[in-house]
């Protein structure tokens, strides 16, 4: 191997050491805390948690819960994304619409998630509730991300398109969307971890069937702290999987777009 190649490998290894070091630190802190407290009910040991997690992974209900939660989270996220795209398109195309939406978005952003959950408990079924809450929480965030992305399009490019009298359709598909896409993807992807948090919180309170939230609530009722932590680990992995799924979908969409553009 050449010197440059060796340097590259060493650089990659050293950059992988940081997350490994952080993980080792968290595990060590957990082990020390569990040993210091000495009470499995308050802080279960790593071994007890892994045993609980192993038991859970052997149960069919766990997979149904994970599938149900991911489905609700992604559905709420996707509905919010489509709605945000429609409203953002209207706002970008028509300045008065943007001004009209602004106070609504401001109110939606400020309403506490708990208020939405409490009201949704009264209005919809426990199965629909996490979806409604996820939508209400994410919609204004995704709308704002899209508006910010549209404002980031260089005004000089917009002027160029105006002077060359480029038709609106071409402007949207060949200027606005390609310029906005990276920022939108980043902004929207960052809401995925928030999605799962909100969905699980809503599931806890709604006691939704086949959900991580209901599983957590049940474990808490039976004082199974190891299983609560097990559910937490599962939720973190599910979040990572959902993010990977959206990243792959965004990558595929970009590739298809690039091929269609003949790049």
């Amino acid at each position: 191997m050449t010197t440059a190649g060796k340097k590259k490998v060493l650089k990659r290894l050293s950059s992988a050491l940081y997350p490994l070091g952080a993980a080792a630190f968290i595990i060590a802190l957990w082990a020390i805390t569990a040993a210091a407290v000495g009470e499995e009910l308050l802080v279960p040991s790593i071994g007890a948690t892994l045993r609980g997690l192993g038991d859970m992974l052997g149960e069919k209900a766990t997979y149904a819960a994970v599938g149900g939660t991911i489905w609700r989270a992604l559905a709420g996220w996707a509905i919010a994304l489509v709605a945000a795209a429609v409203f953002a398109a209207l706002a970008i195309a028509c300045k008065p619409a943007k001004k009209l939406f602004a106070p609504f978005m401001s109110v939606m952003r400020s309403v506490p998630t708990m208020s939405v959950i409490m009201l949704a408990l009264l209005w919809v079924t426990s199965g629909q509730m996490p979806l409604v809450v996820t939508f209400m929480t994410l919609f204004p965030v995704q709308y704002s991300a899209m508006i910010a992305a549209s404002e980031a399009v260089d005004p000089k490019l917009i002027e160029m398109a105006k002077i060359y009298r480029v038709p609106a359709r071409t402007r949207v598909f060949r200027m606005y969307l390609p310029c906005m896409t990276p920022q939108i993807v980043e902004g929207v992807r960052s809401t995925l971890s928030l999605t799962l948090k909100v969905t699980i919180a809503a599931e806890v309170l709604a006691q939704t069937r086949d959900s991580i939230g209901a599983g957590m609530m049940q474990s808490q009722s039976f004082l199974q702290t190891d299983r609560i932590l097990g559910w937490t680990v599962i939720a973190i992995v599910a979040g990572a999987l959902a993010e990977a799924f959206v990243t792959c979908a965004a990558w595929a969409a970009r590739r298809i777009y690039a091929v269609r553009q003949g790049a």
């Binding site: 160029m160 060949r174 390609p178 310029c179 896409t181 790049a263």
Partner: peptide, 16 residues
Amino acid sequence: RLIPALTAADNVRFAV
């Protein structure tokens, strides 16, 4: 004033 996401030829196509 070229669109960063488009290739050189696509920048020309975009305008005309």
